[in-house]
Amino acid sequence: MNGYNNPLMTHLIIGYPSLEESFNTAELYTQYQPEFLELQIPFSHPTADGSKITEANKIAIQKNATTMDDSMNFIERFRKKYPDQKLMIMTYCNKIFRYGITEFCRQMDTMGIRYIIIPDLPVDSNIAAAIHDNKEIQLVPVIAPNIPEQRLNKILSFEPDYIYLMADYKITGSDFGIHEKLENVVGNIRKRSDARIGIGFGIGTGAQVKEILELGDFAIIGSELINAQIENRLEDKLRELIA
C-alpha cells in the first residue's frame, strides 16, 4: 500500500468533534492512502449538506469556535507533515468571500493546494473568476446527473482536472442511490475531457464503493465516516471501504 492511490476521497470537517481530534482523523485517513483527502472549512449554515454534516459544522463553529485562521493553520500544519497527501479544500462561498478571495487563494497557493470545492459557487460566476485569477488554483465543479449538455460543455471549457459528480439528486448523507442518467453523464464527460471523476453523496459501504468505481475514478465518502466515528468503528469502516 503506497502512493496514495486508493480510489477514495475521504471527507472531514475541520474542528469536529474538536480541532485536535479532526487533525487526528485526518492523520488516520492518510494512513489508508486515499487519492484525496477533503477538508471542509466549517460554516454556520452549510446550505447543501445533510443533517450529519450540518450538525458537525454547528459543533465546529458554535461549540468549538473554529475560526478561519484555525482552519488555515490546520491545513498548513497538515500539509507540512504530509506533503504527499493530495488535498481538496471544501467550503461555502461566504467564508472565502469574507476572508478575502485573493488572500485565500494566495495562501492556498503558498501551501501548494490546487483544488477548491465550493458547492454554491458556479464556475462561471464573477466570484469564481476572481479565484481563477490565480492560475494555480482550480475550482472543482460539483455537478449532478441532470446537467444539460450545453452546461456541461461550458463547465468543461474551464478544463478542470477533477469533477465532483453527485450520484443522485441528494444532499450529503442521504440514502445511497445511482440516478439513471449518471452513466450517460460520465460517458459525456469522458468523451470530451480527461478530468478524473469523483462520485459522491450517500456512499457508505464497500459494496457501494465498488459499484461507483465502475463509473467514476474515485468514491467520495463523508457522512458515513462521521457515523462510523461516532460509533467508534472508523478504522473498520476505512478497511471496508478500501477492501
Binding site: S44, T47, N94, K95, F97
Partner: peptide
C-alpha cells in the same frame, strides 16, 4: 449587516467577521 453571499445571492447579511451567519 455586511456584504456577503448566502442563500444564492449577494447582498447585506448579518454575519460575524469570519463569514458565519
Amino acid at each position: 449587516g455586511e456584504k456577503g453571499i448566502f442563500e444564492g445571492y449577494y447582498s447585506y447579511f448579518l454575519q460575524d467577521g469570519d463569514g458565519n451567519i
